[in-house]
Amino acid sequence: MSIPAFQHQRSRVPRTADGIAAALSGARRMAFYRELGQAPIGQAEQVLTRWWCEAELDADPEQDRIIAAARAGTLPTVSMADVLRLRRERGGAMPGE
């Protein structure tokens, strides 16, 4: 599995339901609230995480370039193993920890 290779930078969107909603456009904001409202308690965090990623992309000034590169298959990627290795090396918490 490969994921986009981006330089880490500060989040533009707070990792809260209100932060996510504020970063989304009207129709997408309503879809977010609808999905969050219908999610079982055990899945609410997954919904928040997915929509936070969407909101981060929406708030990225390079959104159009990133989407075009992804569609063209030219978006640089790294393996998940490399991401986890780099996280360990930098002292970051691992998923599930």
Rank of each mutant, 00 (worst) to 15 (best):
A68L: 14
E62C: 09
T74M: 01
D58S: 10
A31Q: 13
E56M: 02
P76H: 11
P61S: 09
G92N: 01
R12T: 04
S2I: 06
G91D: 08
R88C: 02
G73T: 05
P4L: 03
A44L: 06
R10Q: 11
A70W: 12
A68P: 10
S25Y: 06
S79N: 06
D82F: 08
G96R: 09
T74Q: 14
E35W: 07
A22Q: 13
G26L: 08
D58L: 09
G19W: 00
L75V: 12
A21L: 02
E97T: 03
V83G: 06
A31C: 05
A68R: 14
S2L: 07
L36C: 03
W52N: 00
D18I: 04
R65G: 01
E54M: 12
W51E: 03
G19K: 03
I3Y: 13
E56W: 08
P61I: 06
S25F: 10
G96C: 07
A69P: 11
R71M: 15
S25K: 10
A23G: 06
D60P: 04
S79Y: 07
A70R: 15
A5S: 11
G19I: 02
L24E: 03
M80N: 12
A39Q: 04
P14W: 05
L24A: 01
E62F: 00
R87K: 09
R50H: 12
R50F: 11
R28H: 11
